Computed example of a mutant assay.
Amino acid sequence: MCARRTPDGNGPAMTEMAGKTRFDDIYDRPDPRAYFRRLAPFAYEIPQHAQGVFRRTLAERELGGPPGADGEPVTVLDLCCSYGINAALLNHDLTLADLYAHYTDEAADRLTPGELLDRDKEFYAARRRPDAVRIIGVDTAAQATAYALAVGLLDEAYAENLERVPPSHGLARAMGRVGLITVTGGIGYVSHRTFDALLEHVRIPLWVSAFVLRTVPYDRIAESLAAHGLATTTDPHHLYPQRLFTDPAEQRDAVDRVAAAGADPTGFEAAGRYYTRLYESRPAAA
């Protein structure tokens, strides 16, 4: 998830996401313990579903070539990377349940942030997959991205608000190696502005895999991607659960938004959870 910041106070998070519970206090801590403790009761699960999808998509992207710079595998950019959770699952022999257990046990509670960081370096290094890929993280949360970089989950991290300002020189340069953008929790908090800012600096064929809440429209982002030569597809019947609702008001808002979008919340949002759709964008020629 991205830290919840909008460009001018009237951006997408103030409209499309207005009925969604805010967890602002957990998104930019020195480490992810509060994040996992707060979200555990609501069974936040979308990163686990996305892990397999991203791995398959990355394999297809590499087969579809051409590869990244100097013939090496493409780099992944995880948008709204937070504490590097998608990177942890993609590049390590871990499940999301493992991460919940790791950060909510009593041993973790007793550690200082520095001690936890040292423990996590060893924890992730011992579980690194042999097929791990290079991952760049982008999020507005400086402490969260710094943690993910420090423990080795990210190869590069950029705490930047692309809704407001263009990418830094470092991020613009890094985009030249990116062949896949992934996102699980940020659409609605970031808009087409962020994608436009990133795609201006693409240098190799780019694919995008985005899990998007059914309460949030993706049309404007798809239009921006199309302007950069990417065609977007989705299967409206294949849904992925995100988390339980925090209260009846949040559920009513979600049900109303899904129905207003012409979809049926029966058995999905009406049954108590947010659901997402997967949008895949690839070069139109492919």
Rank of each mutant, 00 (worst) to 15 (best):
V178I: 02
D131P: 04
G186D: 01
R33E: 06
P265W: 10
R282N: 07
F36E: 02
M17L: 11
T234K: 04
C81H: 07
N86T: 11
R37P: 00
Y27G: 06
H49N: 01
L225D: 09
D235S: 04
G68I: 00
Y124R: 12
A141E: 00
T194S: 09
S224P: 10
G185I: 05
R277Q: 08
A146C: 00
V151C: 05
K121Q: 09
E156V: 02
P283Y: 00
M175H: 01
D25G: 11
A231E: 13
M175Y: 01
L278M: 07
D253A: 11
D131R: 05
R5I: 05
V165S: 15
G137S: 05
R273S: 11
R128D: 02
H201Y: 09
E16V: 15
Q48V: 10
H92D: 01
D118P: 06
R127M: 10
A260K: 15
L79V: 12
G52T: 02
L230P: 01
P7C: 01
P67M: 07
G188Q: 03
Q48L: 10
Y189T: 13
P265A: 02
N86L: 06
L180N: 07
F23K: 04
T234W: 01
L180Q: 01
A34N: 12
A125G: 10
E200G: 06
T184A: 06
T6C: 08
E45N: 10
E156F: 03
A141W: 07
I204V: 11
F245E: 15
P241E: 00
G179E: 00
F195S: 02
E163W: 10
S82C: 13
